[in-house]
């Protein structure tokens, strides 16, 4: 299927001529899945896929990132699927996704078992309180960085604020906010607006 796609922006990703073996795709994503931490998967993906393996060029990587960001699903898994599909079709997408997920799955399943056995001990609860506070700091920092790069102008700030207030203050459920504020935001950026193309390329380059 992917072989028949005409060369264009998001088509044949392979910068080098030869097609990598499926095992190579699997192992590459397995290594990224085992060594990337704290939501920084995107940086690891870029240095491995664009830098070391040269399976994608940077423009192409960003194009795929922009698809990942627009769709539901995590960047880590969406990127695995998109890159795996472009390298080796359906089998490649599956291999990349499984490789990306396997280490974390084992880690979190073991963590669940250990939590069940030790979660009530006071020292463990105390440590987890520290971990939770640290996680809030880490997640805030991640979104602070993304926001700083990609928020341009009044409407962006308005829609961020609208989503936050709707969920946290007015207790509107997330799917309704996603559909309601999402539709309003899409309409605000409706086709025919002048700067649409530049705005999109600005946003895409902020995903790096």
């Amino acid at each position: 299927m992917s072989e028949s796609v005409k060369p264009s922006a998001a088509a044949p990703a392979v910068a080098s001529k030869e097609v990598p073996p499926v095992l190579d795709v699997f192992l590459t994503f397995l290594i990224i899945g085992a060594t990337s931490f704290g939501g920084a998967v995107v940086a690891y993906l870029r240095s491995s896929l664009v830098g070391k393996k040269k399976w994608l060029d940077d423009t192409h990587f960003l194009e795929l990132m922009s698809i990942s960001n627009t769709l539901p699903g995590l960047n880590a898994t969406n990127m695995s699927i998109l890159v795996g599909d472009r390298l080796r079709g359906t089998v490649g997408a599956a291999a990349a996704l499984i490789g990306m997920c396997l280490p974390g799955f084992i880690f979190m399943t073991v963590a669940g078992i250990m939590y069940g056995e030790n979660g009530d001990r006071p020292i463990v609860t105390a440590m987890l309180k520290g971990v939770a506070a640290a996680a809030v700091g880490l997640i805030s920092a991640t979104w602070f960085q993304i926001g700083k790069k990609s928020v341009k102008g009044f409407y962006d700030a308005f829609f961020i604020l609208a989503a936050v207030l709707a969920v946290n203050h007015f207790k509107v459920s997330v799917p309704i906010v996603l559909i309601g504020v999402g539709a309003l935001a899409i309409f605000t950026n409706r086709p025919g607006k002048q700067r649409q193309k530049e705005a999109l390329s600005e946003w895409i380059s902020s995903l790096r």
Binding site: W143, S150, F159, I160, V177, L178, A185, I186, N189
Partner: peptide
Amino acid sequence: SIQLGLAPVAIGLAVA
């Protein structure tokens, strides 16, 4: 439009 519109909403939901 969808890409530009959903970008700030996604950030807002993450902040929420």
